[in-house]
């Protein structure tokens, strides 16, 4: 639900290789626009050749002089990680999205129990830096494979209570005790491979943890879908308008000279409501009730589209 995020151009200011398959890149703004602070657990999308991959920011959330990401080489992956490992050199320019908060820590937690596996530890690196500033109480349980601890530096974090586990079984053995020992007001956040997240959360549930103290993802902005192209026939003015993918019905109709009112462009205010005379709208708004959506005779032009090829509108 963001305004289309404006991409940023950054320069690779430093490269470190803590292990043979992990690269840490430090990125600085390559334009006069400063970098913005971000919520702990945020990620950025990096343009890797043809592809865009998302990586957690691992630095201090308030440090606007640079962003840092850690990239695991995925041999049989889509190629994004190979690009960042093999092709990118110091001084190169990269295109990134602004930070997106995907997994922010629960502010109300009295204590944070953080459990991470492998590269899944990356969002917790920015947590740890933010917690160091606010004095929030936390403990991090971090499981990795033998001889592959790319984030040994974590142990030096101020105030950090970090426990390392080598191999999944050693964490699994300690988990019941960890979960049972947690005090009132402790929140559990888990990051790692999906199977590991499910395993930890399921165990927590069976040991009586309430849902609101379990976290594996938060605050995902919802963007109106670009959608398929369709046609709008305006019954009153007799115009036929093509709505391409990526253009809203509102913009297309206004572009054709029809003065349809609007305010929020987010499907919540109700200003851009239009009566549908024929065709089936695909609703993406928050304004119409589910009964109104089911009836299908109203559409919010700023975010909603068409189920099929054509809508006939009372305009």
């Amino acid at each position: 639900m963001t305004a289309a995020a404006v991409p940023l151009t950054v320069a690779v200011a430093g490269i470190e290789e803590p292990t043979s398959d992990v690269r840490t890149l430090r990125l600085v703004s390559a334009t006069s626009a400063p970098l913005s602070p971000f919520a702990p657990g945020s990620n950025i999308e990096v343009q890797c050749g043809e592809r865009r991959n998302a990586y957690s920011l691992i630095g201090d959330p308030r440090d606007t002089s640079q962003y840092a990401i850690s990239v695991l080489r995925v041999a049989d992956g889509s190629g994004g990680s190979r690009f960042l490992h093999d092709e990118v050199r110091r001084g190169d320019l990269l295109t990134i999205s602004p930070p997106k908060s995907a997994f922010a820590p629960p502010a109300a937690a009295r204590h944070h129990l953080l459990i991470a596996a492998g590269i899944g530890v990356t969002p917790f690196l920015s947590y740890a830096r933010a917690f160091a500033r606010t004095g929030a109480s936390y403990e991090l349980h971090y499981v990795h494979r033998a001889r592959q601890d790319p984030h040994a530096g974590l142990l030096g974090l101020p105030g950090a209570a970090v426990r390392r586990y080598v191999g999944r079984e050693s964490l699994a053995a300690s988990l019941p005790e960890l979960l049972d020992a947690a005090g009132v007001g402790t929140h559990l956040s888990v990051c790692g491979p999906p199977a590991m997240i499910d395993e930890v959360l399921d165990l927590a549930r069976t040991r009586g943890w309430p849902e609101h103290r379990l976290h594996s993802e938060r605050f995902v902005g919802v963007e109106a879908p670009a959608g398929e192209p369709f046609t709008a026939r305006l019954a009153r003015s007799g115009q036929t308008i093509a709505i391409p993918s990526g253009t809203s019905l509102l913009d297309a109709v206004r572009g054709a000279g029809v003065d349809l009112p609007y305010l929020c462009r987010q499907g919540v205010c109700g200003e851009c409501k239009v009566r549908v005379l024929a065709g089936t709208p695909a609703h993406h708004d928050l304004h119409l009730t589910s009964a109104q959506k089911a009836a299908g005779d109203l559409v919010m032009a700023c975010v909603s589209r068409c189920e099929g090829d054509e809508l006939e509108l009372d305009l």
Binding site: M1, T2, A3, A5, V6, S36, F38, A39, P98, P99, K100, S101, F219, G221, V222, C264, Q266, V268, L286, H287, T289
Partner: peptide, 20 residues
């Protein structure tokens, strides 16, 4: 009218890039 739940949903999707 369901105005408040819709407004709350809207606010929960706010991102830092755009104020309202």
């Amino acid at each position: 009218a369901g105005v408040m739940p819709a407004a709350e949903q809207f606010l929960m999707r706010l991102t830092p890039e755009q104020a309202y």
